[in-house]
Simulated scan of single mutants.
Amino acid sequence: MDELDEILGAERKEPTTFHPVNERSHDAWFPGNEAASLVIQVGHIWEDLLALIELRANAADEYSKRLLLKYGIIEVRSLIEVFDRLQSIVMKANTFDPRERQGWREITAEEKEKAKELFKAYSEAKKGTSQKVIDIRNTIGAHRGCLDWQQVMVFWDSVTPDLINPLLATIPPAFDFVKELDLFEWNRVPREGSIEVIGGMLRPEYFEVTE
Score class of each variant (00 low, 15 high):
Glu34Met: 06
Glu34Trp: 05
Ala35Cys: 00
Ala35Arg: 00
Ala35Gly: 04
Ala35His: 04
Ala36Met: 00
Ala36Val: 00
Ala36Leu: 07
Ser37Pro: 01
Leu38Pro: 08
Leu38Ala: 06
Leu38Asp: 02
Val39Cys: 07
Val39His: 05
Val39Ser: 01
Val39Glu: 03
Ile40Lys: 04
Gln41Cys: 09
Gln41Ala: 06
Val42His: 08
Val42Pro: 08
Val42Gly: 11
Val42Gln: 04
Gly43Thr: 09
His44Phe: 09
Trp46Ser: 05
Trp46Asn: 12
Trp46Arg: 09
Glu47Ala: 06
Glu47Asp: 07
Glu47Val: 00
Glu47Asn: 07
Asp48Lys: 09
Leu49Trp: 00
Leu49Cys: 01
Leu49Gly: 07
Leu50Gln: 04
Leu50Ala: 02
Leu50Tyr: 05
Ala51His: 10
Leu52Pro: 01
Ile53Cys: 08
Ile53Trp: 02
Ile53Phe: 03
Ile53Asn: 11
Ile53Lys: 12
Ile53Leu: 11
Glu54His: 12
Glu54Ala: 10
Leu55Val: 01
Leu55Ser: 04
Arg56His: 05
Arg56Phe: 03
Ala57Asp: 14
Asn58Ile: 00
Ala59Asp: 01
Ala60Gln: 06
Ala60Cys: 05
Asp61Ser: 05
Glu62Val: 13
Glu62Thr: 09
Glu62Gly: 03
Glu62Asp: 15
Tyr63Gly: 08
Tyr63Arg: 14
Ser64Leu: 03
Ser64Ala: 11
Ser64Cys: 08
Lys65Phe: 01
Arg66Asn: 07
Arg66Tyr: 04
Arg66Leu: 09
Arg66Ile: 07
Leu67Val: 14
Leu67Gly: 05
Leu67Pro: 02
Leu68Glu: 05
Leu69Lys: 12
Lys70Trp: 11
Lys70Asp: 13
Tyr71Ala: 12
Gly72Trp: 10
Gly72Met: 14
Gly72Cys: 14
Ile73Asn: 10
Ile73Gly: 13
Ile74Lys: 03
Ile74Asp: 15
Ile74Ala: 09
Glu75Arg: 14
Glu75Tyr: 11
Val76Lys: 05
Arg77Trp: 14
Ser78Val: 14
Ser78Lys: 12
Leu79Gly: 14
Glu81Tyr: 13
Glu81Phe: 08
Glu81Ile: 12
Val82Thr: 15
Val82Pro: 00
Val82His: 11
Phe83Val: 15
Phe83Gln: 10
Asp84Ile: 15
Asp84His: 08
Gln87Asn: 15
Gln87Arg: 15
Ser88Gly: 15
Ile89Ala: 03
Ile89Pro: 04
Val90Gln: 12
Met91Thr: 11
Lys92Ala: 06
Lys92Met: 04
Ala93Glu: 09
Thr95Phe: 00
Thr95Val: 13
Thr95Arg: 03
Phe96Met: 10
Phe96Gln: 07
Phe96Val: 01
Phe96Asp: 02
Asp97Phe: 04
Asp97Gln: 05
Pro98Asp: 06
Glu100Ala: 03
Glu100Gln: 09
Glu100Ser: 04
